[in-house]
Design a binder for these strands. Structure first.
Length: 279
DNA sequence: ACGCCCGCCTGTAAGC
DNA sequence: TGCTTACAGGCGGGCG
């Protein structure tokens, strides 16, 4: 499912394609994907005719900054895709909810079968210029947790279990179920450890694991699972799934010690880990 | 403060 | 083979 590496892959592909381009028209199908807006009209009027000045990301949110100072925010939720079509004549996939036509040809399509994702336009905060709707997000897992001491400060301040904390977007933004499990395995730490129980050495391992896993995943263009929900701008799958060491490997031998990988349900979510390598 | 559940959704696949 | 059911989970809200 789209987490930080998948959104970052889309961001890196989208930036050279969209920056400097004018959005010549906007089409919206249905109201669910744009539910933050009172009407389709509002989004259409604020985006049409604007030029994209940069493409950013915060956590799992994709940010298209416009020359009006507004930001067009895209969140993929569980099943969202941003697809680029070179020609507007290419047939649109099912569940295409928002279409941005680019001046000079081609269009961007927001496609989302399960409709957990959304698209909205936001005005900048008067003080810091950020997106107020995203002010609740914590440190970006890739850009802002730059030293293990940053992570130590976050972990020590809470008394929650490690995995729910890693997935709490208000604390660290960008990690979901897949990468949390992969990071915890790489760090050799169990998901249900209390966050303030880690030794400095374990915090350093966790920090190194987080940075390394995220960079590796971006290098392999993200994880497309069996359902193939995640696709990049061109509709191609990412290949990081083949490098998962615990996620969706229940019963398979641990790649480090051969112990069967265990699956547990925690807070209604599947958690995969090696009972021997993770302590 | 924390843990856990629900509702929102659709496509896929396992089970009967 | 065809139907029903479970499952996938990001996120916000609510409850104990």
């Amino acid at each position: 499912m789209p987490e930080l590496p998948e959104v970052e892959t889309i961001r890196r592909d989208l930036a050279p394609l969209a920056v400097g381009r004018r959005i010549s028209s906007v089409q919206v199908r249905g109201t669910r994907s744009i539910r933050r807006h009172a009407s389709e009209r509002e989004l259409i009027d604020r985006v049409t005719g604007r030029t994209v000045t940069s493409v950013g990301r915060k956590g799992k949110y994709l940010l298209l900054r416009l020359d009006s100072a507004d930001t067009l925010v895209v969140h993929l939720g569980m099943s969202g895709q941003v697809l680029h079509a070179r020609s507007r004549l290419e047939p649109r996939p099912r569940h295409t909810h928002v279409v941005l036509a680019l001046a000079g040809g081609g269009e961007l399509r927001f496609v989302d079968p399960r409709t957990f994702g959304e698209v909205f336009v936001a005005a900048p905060d008067a003080r810091d210029g950020g997106v107020p709707e995203l002010a609740h997000l914590g440190f970006d897992a890739l850009e802002q947790v730059t030293s293990w001491r940053d992570l130590a400060a976050v972990l020590g301040g809470r008394r929650t279990k490690l995995k729910p904390l890693l997935m709490d977007q208000r604390v660290i933004a960008g990690l979901g179920n897949i990468y949390s499990d992969e990071i915890l395995f790489a760090a050799g730490v169990r998901h249900d450890r209390r966050s303030d129980s880690l030794s400095p050495q374990e915090v350093r391992r966790l920090h190194r694991a987080m940075t390394r896993i995220l960079h590796d995943a971006i290098e392999h263009r993200g994880s497309s699972l069996a359902d193939q929900q995640y696709r990049d701008l061109n509709g191609d799958a990412g290949s990081f799934r083949a490098r998962h060491r615990v996620y969706a490997r229940e019963g398979a031998p641990c790649l480090r010690c051969r112990t069967p990988i265990v699956r547990e349900n925690a807070a209604g979510r599947s958690t995969f880990f090696c009972p021997r390598c993770q302590t």
